[in-house]
C-alpha cells in the first residue's frame, strides 16, 4: 500500500523544504483536511451505503444485514463487523490476493473506531437473547487511493450506518423471519470521527495525502465521539511521538473532528 510507494526524492526534499515554512505541497495549512464530500444511499440494494471522497481518495461503503447466532459471551448484543479492502482499480501498487498487513490494519482500525465509540446500541439489535441477533456488516471498498485510507473508510462506514434502514425481523418458531416492506432506523448513539495525523520532523500534518504519507516519520489515528472524548487510537509508521506531541494530536483530533462531524450530520440529514 502507501508505504511501498517510492516517492521521488526531489519531491520529498520539496515537501520537507515547504514544511520548514509551515507550508504543504497542495497549499493546505497543517491542520486543514482536503475537501470532503459524502453521498449516502448510492447503492440502493445495500441496506445503507455511502461514497466518500477526501481529496483524491475515495471509498464506497455498503451495509448488509442478516440475522446471526450471537457469540457465546455476548448473547445480549447484536453483531457489528467492518471490513476494508483496496480494490486493484485504486492504485497501481494495489494487488489482488490475500490481504497484506497494511490492509488488515486498515480494516481493524476502521472497525475499532466504530465499535469502541458504541455508535450503534448493540443491545437493541437482539431478536432473542443467546439465540438470534441482528448482524450488521459494513464493507469498505477503496476505489481511488491518494493516502489516508483510515479516515475515509471511517467516514464511509459512519455515513453508511447512519443512513441505513435495518430490515425488521420477528422470531417465529425459534427462527428469525424477515417482515417484508418494514424497516427500522439504526439505534445511533453517537457519531465517531477519526482524524489521522502524520508527523514529519516536528510538524504534525492533518489528513496526509499520498506524497506526505510516503515520507512521514510516524502517524496516529485518533477517533473521538460526539461528546469530544477519545474512543480509539492507533499509532503507526517507523518513528515515535513525544508526550507533548500526543497531547497536541488529541486536541487537534477533537477540533478537526467536530468540524467533520458537522459535515457528516449535514450529509446524512433526512436519510433517517
Amino acid at each position: 500500500m502507501a508505504s511501498s510507494v517510492i516517492i521521488d526524492s526531489l519531491k520529498k526534499a520539496h515537501i520537507l523544504e515547504l514544511l520548514a515554512d509551515g507550508k504543504r505541497l497542495d497549499g493546505r495549512s497543517l491542520e486543514q483536511t482536503r475537501e470532503l464530500s459524502i453521498d449516502v444511499g448510492v447503492i440502493p440494494k445495500a441496506e445503507g451505503s455511502a461514497r466518500v471522497r477526501l481529496g483524491d481518495t475515495e471509498v464506497v461503503a455498503g451495509v448488509k444485514v442478516k440475522p446471526e447466532k450471537p457469540f457465546p459471551d455476548t448473547g445480549d448484543q447484536g453483531m457489528l463487523i467492518c471490513t476494508a479492502e483496496i480494490l486493484p482499480i485504486a492504485h497501481p501498487t494495489a494487488e489482488t490476493g490475500p490481504p497484506t498487513p497494511d490492509v488488515v490494519e486498515l480494516a481493524r482500525v476502521t472497525d475499532r473506531g466504530i465499535r469502541e465509540s458504541k455508535m450503534l446500541d448493540m443491545k437493541q439489535l437482539v431478536l432473542e437473547k443467546d439465540k438470534s441477533v441482528i448482524g450488521v456488516f459494513c464493507d469498505n471498498a477503496v476505489t481511488d487511493h491518494d493516502g489516508n485510507l483510515f479516515d475515509v473508510c471511517s467516514y464511509a462506514t459512519t455515513a453508511a450506518l447512519i443512513s441505513c434502514k435495518l430490515p425488521k425481523y420477528e422470531m417465529q418458531d425459534d427462527l428469525p423471519v424477515k417482515i417484508e416492506n418494514e424497516t427500522i432506523d439504526p439505534p445511533i448513539t453517537t457519531i465517531p470521527i477519526s482524524v489521522t495525523m502524520a508527523r514529519i520532523g516536528d510538524n504534525i500534518l492533518v489528513d496526509p495525502n499520498m506524497d506526505e504519507w510516503s515520507c512521514l516519520d510516524a502517524r496516529i489515528t485518533i477517533t473521538t465521539n460526539s461528546d469530544g472524548n477519545v474512543v480509539a487510537l492507533q499509532k503507526g509508521g517507523p518513528g515515535g511521538f513525544t508526550y507533548d506531541q500526543l497531547i497536541k494530536c488529541a486536541e487537534i483530533s477533537i477540533q478537526v473532528g467536530s468540524k467533520i462531524r458537522e459535515i457528516m450530520k449535514e450529509a446524512t440529514k433526512g436519510s433517517n
Partner: peptide
C-alpha cells in the same frame, strides 16, 4: 516507550477516555 529518548513508539486505544483521562493514562 523508549525512556532514554522519551519517545512513544507503540500506542493504541480501545475504549472511552475523556481528554483528561487520556492525559492521565499517558502519564
Amino acid at each position: 516507550y523508549m525512556p532514554n529518548l522519551e519517545k512513544i513508539t507503540l500506542l493504541q486505544l480501545d475504549g472511552l477516555l475523556t481528554p483528561e483521562e487520556y492525559k492521565e493514562c499517558l502519564e
